[in-house]
Nucleic acid binder design. Structure first.
Lengths: 109, 109
DNA sequence: TTATATACCTCGTCTGTCAAGGTATATAAC
DNA sequence: GTTATATACCTTGACAGACGAGGTATATAA
């Protein structure tokens, strides 16, 4: 595992939920958006991405439906649920808190 | 695992090295310093702490020696090595980069 | 002698990540 | 026609870090 991944570890769900706040989307597109936003510095590995979708759907944070494209590969779309929005807000608050803690901890004195 | 722990995951080594930059120290004291610095909001679990010491010593980032207390429980002191300092600097840079990436990723738009 | 604080350690489990593999559709190149 | 690339989904098995639960030992205070 790369160091950057270890740093992002635990935030995968938050990142995905953030993408879904704006509009429904599907795995491939979400990953492209992440790569673009970070200027190619970060991407979610496919296995990680689809594991996260399963986890989020099981916990009621997202729901899914198949798109009705009549051309190209099929797409599975995801929607964020009200519970997902709550969880998102909670996770962002957690991130802000733990980022603050780390700032205090990783610099000497 | 608590959410906060998952956020800190991967930063344990950096936190420990940061403590050792100032002076040699031992496990129990390092943990107390962390609890104090974060106002009790975070602590390293003992199993995590001693796993990290083993990992850091094996990778040449720290060395250890037994203290010569003639009272109380024995203490195992750790020193950061030049290689450990390098690693620390690398990890801090990584943290700063990934914190920036996350800022861009966890907020919509 | 019982409790608390200090101080160290290990074992086994859990969870998130990811390499490696797979399937299927559409387009462009040769 | 077939080979390559892009799109788009998925699963399996292994790995690594975190940690609950247990253990050992010393000193002091109740």
């Amino acid at each position: 595992m790369s160091l950057a991944s270890d740093m992002i570890r635990g935030h995968t769900d938050t990142i995905i939920l953030a993408q879904l706040l704006k509009e429904d989307s599907y795995g491939y597109k979400i990953n492209r958006a992440i790569v673009e936003k970070t200027g190619g510095l970060f991407e979610l590995k496919e296995a990680t991405l689809y594991t996260a979708f399963r986890r989020l759907e099981q916990s009621g944070c997202i729901t899914s439906y198949w798109g009705d494209e009549n051309t190209g590969a099929r797409r599975k779309y995801y929607s964020i649920t009200p519970h997902g929005v709550e969880e998102y807000n909670r996770m962002v608050a957690q991130w802000e808190q733990s980022a603050g803690l780390l700032q205090r901890l990783i610099y000497p004195e």
